[in-house]
């Protein structure tokens, strides 16, 4: 079976992560008194150059389209057109959804804004990316809660390994809105101490090893699991990919408020919490995956609260969402496959 490699990446997050080098030194972990981690956004004029299209795009769409286009921009400035586009979002265009719903209430279900309605659907940033690229191929969006990113990646991996496609763009994005935060606060969603986050992460997946950043060896979804089973699953994931548990150099953990799971994993593997930098949102595992690719490609490893030059070989990414959706991913350094 063909292997899947990550050839290019791009990320907008609450940290300096977009088109920047040496970013780790400026990163700041979320403080307890902070309740929301907003993305550091680039100047979109230089990325989405068509003002006519840009003016209708809400925050989420701009983030999703920008990392997608950046991920596909070749060194010569030309855009690579992938065989397929897979997008992931847990909540979709909330800003536009809220504006549209507000309009329904304020105007008595009359005089409804077509732009907000059109842009509110979850598949808008995937669709806009396709339109801007002139891409007429496979273009699908997964809105599967905490499994959205992994579902899009799984789709891409299945099509790549079966030989149906040669490359695929996978982008996961979600945004913070004040209403969403407040509604989820009333539901008790933030009691675990996690901050609400947002961002967009894009990956160009390919079957070509040459020039790739690392291998995406596995994506796994867990459900109704226990802390011990989670730690066991990481080991099983390693074993099913011809690795021993001790070969896992690092587990990037995105625990929610499940301290027992955190302890089980950290008792058996070296861990670093990635959500301290991006917060909690549906497609946060895209950020975890992006950090994993950066560590492997740049030869960097976490050391306490600092970073050191050290080449890791195998990184697992563990993510939780609402203590219900649990996922695992496995990255391998491309050169050792």
């Amino acid at each position: 079976m063909k292997k899947v490699f990550i050839a290019r990446t791009s990320c907008i997050s609450p940290q300096e992560s977009f088109r920047t080098n040496g970013f780790f030194s400026s990163w700041k972990a979320a403080q307890a008194e902070t309740d929301q981690l907003h993305a550091i956004e680039p100047d979109y004029k230089g990325i989405i150059t068509d003002a006519g299209k840009r003016r209708r795009m809400a925050h989420l769409i701009k983030m999703g389209v920008s990392t997608s286009l950046d991920c596909l921009t070749l060194p010569d400035g030309n855009l690579l057109i992938p065989d397929a586009i897979m997008s992931a979002t847990a909540m979709g265009g909330l800003e536009d959804t809220e504006k549209f719903l507000r309009c329904i209430i304020d105007n008595g279900e009359d005089l409804l804004n077509p732009s907000n309605f059109i842009q509110s659907t979850g598949n808008t940033f995937g669709g806009q990316t396709g339109l801007l690229l002139g891409h007429h191929g496979y273009n699908v969006t997964y809105a599967h809660g905490g499994y959205s990113m992994e579902s899009a990646l799984t789709d891409a991996m299945l099509q790549l390994t079966s030989g149906d496609i040669k490359d695929a763009l996978v982008t996961g994005a979600d945004e913070i809105t004040a209403t969403e935060y407040e509604v989820m606060r009333k539901m008790g969603f933030w009691r675990g101490g996690r901050q609400m986050g947002e961002g967009s992460s894009s990956f160009l997946l390919t079957t070509e090893k040459e020039g790739s950043v690392c291998e995406l060896a596995a994506v796994s979804l867990l459900h109704e699991t226990t802390p011990k089973q989670i730690a066991n699953s990481i080991e099983e994931l390693a074993n099913s990919n011809q690795l021993k548990a001790t070969d896992i150099d690092l587990v990037l953990t995105g625990c929610d408020c499940d301290k027992a799971a955190e302890k089980e994993i950290s008792d058996r593997f070296p861990v670093t919490d990635y959500k301290q930098w991006c917060g909690q949102y549906g497609t946060k595992s895209g950020f975890g995956l992006w950090i994993g690719t950066q560590l492997l490609s740049r030869g960097i490893a976490p050391k306490g609260n600092q970073w050191e030059q050290k080449q890791l070989k195998n990184i697992a990414i563990y993510s939780e969402y609402r203590q219900n959706d649990y996922t695992l991913m496995l990255l391998k350094m491309a050169q050792i496959n």
Binding site: R56, N107, L111, L112, N113, P114, S115, I118
Partner: peptide, 13 residues
């Protein structure tokens, strides 16, 4: 054409 719809709404609103 989407702007045209917005203009219709603007006049009414």
């Amino acid at each position: 054409s989407i702007d045209a719809l917005e203009l219709v709404m603007l006049l009414e609103k």
